[in-house]
Computed example of a mutant assay.
Amino acid sequence: MYDAQMPTSSLTPADLQARTARAVTAAVNAGLALGLKAAQPKVLHDVFSVVVHLAPAPVVVRVPVVLPPGLDASRQTARQARELAVVSWLDSHGLPVVRPSPLVPCEPVQRDGFSMTFWEFVEVDPSRTPDYVAEAALAARLHAVLRGYPGELPFLSPLAATLPTCLALLEENPGLLPPADIERARGEWALLSPLLSTREGFAAKFPQVSVQPIHGDAPSYNVLRTAEGVRYADFEDVTLGPVEWDLSFLGPQGAAVYDAAAAQVGVRALDPAALRVVDAARMLQMVVCHALVPQLPMLAEGLAPSLQAWRDTPFAGGLA
């Protein structure tokens, strides 16, 4: 896979442009091989993934290009297959989602060193303004449906599968973060990992908090707003875990909105203690994402406010 070997120095603008061009070419070639018309490809998004509309076909290809360390080809394919399976199941149960494209097989496609997935093209309504706090209610509705998903999912994979490898990469590559930050991050993960690395460890600390299939990456943010309404999207991190993980960083107002919506759809209310733990873990996750800066240099500037906020908070969010 393209990024199997992590760069040790930051990619240049020319490197990034070349990577995007390779991803677009791979998406077009894969689409053509599957019988799609893709004469006018258009890049819709280019950050962690290159997202390409294979116009005039009503198909969008998501090509991940910035990958966490340790995510080899087989794990990447398994992750994408889980996403496709969950979204297909949600669609069959009436949830408004951005669906896998019905024009190609519902499976990851490998081409030119990339692994990609194919989705239906959805027209976004630019006049619809996001309100992430108010839209915390969307997470409750999603959780109500996801509870019934019968497939197997790993426990908190966005955290447990990537945070230790990112932390190790930071330790191996001095300069991405100051030593004091790395030392603090290591200490926080030592405190949090027994609680969040396994389902058994979480249950031992929070026996009163149920776990279930969850979106894995802030569902009130990862939606597309269309003229017909909201579509849930981007289930790359779908996982088993406490619903609190999907509500991190939304604050007391977001939690109140979620709890009100949860009561209406029969989902349990948020547990304040569990929410504090996942908030601390999410903050730590943002910090160790600096390990990805060589692959995506613009990430350093984007992470700067979170890094400073983390430095200004007590160790592990005051949990110690």
Rank of each mutant, 00 (worst) to 15 (best):
L170S: 00
V145H: 04
E172Y: 00
E183Y: 03
R184T: 10
T162G: 02
Y221D: 11
T165C: 10
G254P: 06
A203Q: 13
A161H: 09
P179D: 14
A144E: 04
Y232C: 07
T226S: 13
L191Q: 05
L163N: 13
T129C: 08
A134W: 04
A134E: 14
P174V: 00
G201F: 13
V145D: 03
L167K: 00
H143W: 05
A140Y: 06
A255H: 15
E183V: 14
Y132T: 14
P219H: 09
D181F: 09
L167R: 07
L170Q: 01
G175S: 12
A168W: 00
D181I: 01
Y149M: 08
L138A: 10
A180G: 12
G175W: 01
L163S: 09
L146E: 04
V223T: 14
E171Q: 14
V223D: 04
S157M: 13
D217H: 07
F206Y: 10
Q253M: 04
L170P: 01
V243L: 15
G151L: 06
L250I: 03
L170V: 01
R225G: 00
T165M: 09
A185V: 10
G251M: 02
T162L: 02
A204M: 11
G151A: 11
G241D: 05
S210W: 12
T165S: 15
L191P: 00
A139H: 07
A134F: 03
Y132K: 06
I214P: 10
V230M: 15
P178N: 05
E171Y: 02
R147M: 15
L163G: 07
G175H: 06
E183N: 12
Y149K: 12
T239K: 08
L156D: 09
S157N: 06
R186G: 11
P174E: 07
A136F: 04
A203M: 03
N173P: 01
P242E: 03
L169Y: 11
D246K: 00
E135Y: 05
L191F: 15
T165I: 15
S157F: 03
D237M: 12
A227I: 00
V133E: 11
A161P: 13
W245P: 00
P158C: 08
R141G: 13
P242V: 11
G251E: 11
A218M: 14
D234R: 02
A190R: 14
R199I: 10
E244V: 03
L167Y: 02
D237G: 07
S248V: 15
L153P: 09
T226R: 07
A190E: 14
A161F: 14
P154Q: 12
Q212E: 10
G175E: 10
H143K: 03
I182Y: 08
L196Q: 03
S193Y: 13
N222W: 09
P164D: 06
V238M: 05
L146H: 08
P252T: 00
V243R: 11
A134Y: 04
G229M: 03
S210E: 11
L138K: 03
L142H: 09
F202C: 13
P164G: 06
L176W: 01
V230K: 01
Q253V: 08
W245Q: 06
A137H: 03
Q212C: 12
G216R: 12
A218P: 07
A204P: 12
V211T: 15
G201I: 05
V243Q: 10
P242D: 05
A161I: 04
V230S: 00
R141K: 10
E172N: 15
G201Y: 10
L169V: 02
E200A: 15
S193G: 01
F206E: 04
V257P: 00
G229D: 00
P207I: 09
S193D: 11
P158Q: 05
